[in-house]
């Protein structure tokens, strides 16, 4: 019986990319394994240690009645629960169903739609249970994941800034793709955390970390339309992607949908 904190990783409706970020830690993985007991992490090992768990990382959104039950069981067994990624924090790309009729999809896709038990909406974990911390991204940034793990291990606040991607661009000295090239970029309204990857590779941010703490999406959309010549349907699609169900992006997307 280990006296190390017990870490569990749970998957709901998702692509596994965020939990793979933990395996992707490579250099730090042995340190992680040295500091916590990987009690439940099916991507890494089929061994399961019974709860309760000191820290649960939850990936994925709630899309079925079964998962809506299961997340409550996870919460009951977890001292701290941290959601990781756009699916868990905002409903993910699959929340595009929320704007359509899911039953119509099931009839079109499945030979026997009567076997399908699915919810009309894909929703974030925080809509169902209390969440202690939300880590954004599609996928999450592994450096930020390590920071959250360090913070929870040492009972301190995670150092995860909620300002815009622009701050990361400017600190890195990246030339603004919107101002210098007229490229639409969601950076000014998007939550930092990726290190401004897309602008560093010469393209606009597509908002995979969801809305920043402070957003003025109507002003940005207005500028795209009037000065960058972005048509309305493209504007709608820009906001309705990985974080379509995040309230600020959803509202802006619906204004142009």
């Amino acid at each position: 019986m280990s006296d190390k904190p017990k870490l569990a990783v749970w998957k709901f409706a998702s692509c596994d990319g965020c939990q793979l970020s933990l395996l992707d830690c490579e250099d730090e993985l042995l340190t992680v394994a040295g500091e916590v007991e990987l009690a439940m992490f099916l991507e890494a090992s089929s061994a399961r240690v019974e709860g309760p768990y000191d820290l649960s990382l939850v990936e994925g959104s709630i899309t079925t009645p079964h998962d809506a039950e299961r997340i409550r069981a996870v919460r009951e067994q977890s001292r701290a629960l941290v959601t990781i990624g756009a699916c868990a924090t905002a409903g993910g790309i699959q929340a595009l169903r929320n704007f359509q009729d899911v039953e119509e999809f099931t009839r079109a896709v499945y030979a026997h739609p009567e076997y399908i038990r699915t919810l009309a909406r894909s929703t974030p974990i925080a809509d169902h249970v209390k969440v202690d911390f939300e880590l954004r991204g599609c996928p999450i940034d592994k450096g930020q994941l390590l920071e959250v793990l360090s913070a929870f291990l040492h009972r301190r606040k995670p150092r995860i800034p909620t300002f815009s991607v622009c701050v990361e661009c400017k600190r890195r000295g990246i030339v603004c793709v919107t101002v210098a090239r007229g490229e639409p970029c969601l950076g000014p309204v998007t939550h930092a955390g990726c290190g401004a990857i897309c602008p560093a590779f010469d393209r606009g941010c597509y908002g995979c970390f969801g809305p920043a703490a402070s957003t003025n999406t109507p002003s940005l959309a207005d500028h795209w339309k009037k000065h960058l010549g972005v048509p309305d349907d493209e504007l709608g699609r820009a906001f309705l992607s990985f974080n379509a169900w995040a309230p600020d992006f959803r509202a802006e997307g619906e204004r142009h949908g």
Partner: peptide, 13 residues
């Protein structure tokens, strides 16, 4: 404030 994005660019440049 209706136009400002509070993105911090002005202060950083």
């Amino acid at each position: 404030a209706e136009r400002c994005l509070a993105c911090a660019n002005c202060t950083l440049v």
